[in-house]
Amino acid sequence: MHSIAKNCRRIKENLKLLNPIEQYNLIKNNPNQIYQYNFINDNPQNKQIGFIAQNLRNVFNDNNIVQGNENDLYDHNVPLTVDYGRMTTYLYGALKQSIIEIENLKKKNNELEEIIISIKDEIKYLKYIISL
């Protein structure tokens, strides 16, 4: 089953740009694990992967990622659901911020490598001076 979201600008209003740093921190500080499982009363060979909705609710409580009634947490007839489409948007923001941070670290690393080369050259020069 594929999830299709309505993403056309023409049908949206009250747009608010989300901060990728907040999305990054939300994902980075998320203690939830990804599980492999099968559904109760289903063939054990039908392996699934995903999160536990009850655990995600603590992280994404205001973002409609987890849907369902809090009072139905343990009612197997009305399970909580995870909207992976919405979660993907947060993951995109976190990935975007991660890429920015990686690029900044690469730049800083290159600068430090240049400094190291310069220091090595100075040491070689000082050794030469001392040997005279």
Rank of each mutant, 00 (worst) to 15 (best):
residue 1 M to K: 06
residue 2 H to C: 10
residue 2 H to R: 09
residue 3 S to F: 14
residue 3 S to C: 14
residue 4 I to T: 01
residue 6 K to Y: 08
residue 6 K to Q: 07
residue 6 K to C: 06
residue 6 K to H: 12
residue 9 R to S: 15
residue 9 R to N: 14
residue 10 R to M: 13
residue 12 K to F: 07
residue 13 E to P: 00
residue 14 N to K: 14
residue 14 N to M: 11
residue 14 N to C: 13
residue 15 L to F: 06
residue 16 K to G: 03
residue 19 N to Q: 05
residue 19 N to F: 06
residue 22 E to P: 08
residue 22 E to T: 12
residue 29 N to A: 05
residue 30 N to H: 00
residue 33 Q to D: 14
residue 41 N to E: 10
residue 44 P to G: 04
residue 44 P to K: 02
residue 45 Q to M: 07
residue 46 N to P: 02
residue 46 N to E: 05
residue 52 I to Y: 04
residue 53 A to M: 03
residue 53 A to E: 04
residue 54 Q to L: 15
residue 54 Q to F: 07
residue 57 R to C: 03
residue 57 R to D: 10
residue 58 N to S: 08
residue 61 N to D: 05
residue 62 D to S: 14
residue 63 N to V: 05
residue 64 N to P: 02
residue 64 N to A: 11
residue 64 N to K: 15
residue 64 N to E: 12
residue 65 I to Y: 01
residue 66 V to R: 00
residue 68 G to K: 06
residue 68 G to L: 06
residue 69 N to S: 14
residue 69 N to I: 08
residue 69 N to V: 11
residue 71 N to K: 14
residue 71 N to F: 09
residue 72 D to W: 00
residue 73 L to V: 08
residue 75 D to Y: 12
residue 75 D to N: 15
residue 76 H to R: 14
residue 76 H to L: 15
residue 77 N to G: 07
residue 77 N to M: 10
residue 77 N to W: 11
residue 78 V to E: 13
residue 79 P to I: 06
residue 80 L to M: 05
residue 80 L to V: 02
residue 81 T to E: 05
residue 82 V to N: 01
residue 82 V to C: 09
residue 83 D to I: 02
residue 85 G to W: 05
residue 86 R to M: 04
residue 87 M to G: 03
residue 88 T to N: 10
residue 91 L to Q: 04
residue 95 L to H: 04
residue 95 L to S: 05
residue 96 K to L: 03
residue 98 S to K: 01
residue 98 S to E: 01
residue 98 S to R: 00
residue 100 I to R: 09
residue 101 E to G: 00
residue 102 I to Y: 12
residue 103 E to N: 06
residue 103 E to L: 00
residue 105 L to N: 11
residue 106 K to Q: 15
residue 107 K to L: 13
residue 108 K to E: 15
residue 110 N to W: 01
residue 110 N to K: 08
residue 111 E to S: 15
residue 111 E to Q: 13
residue 112 L to W: 04
residue 116 I to M: 09
residue 116 I to A: 08
residue 118 S to I: 03
residue 121 D to G: 06
residue 123 I to W: 04
residue 124 K to A: 11
residue 125 Y to T: 10
residue 126 L to M: 10
residue 126 L to R: 14
residue 129 I to Q: 09
residue 132 L to S: 12
residue 132 L to K: 15
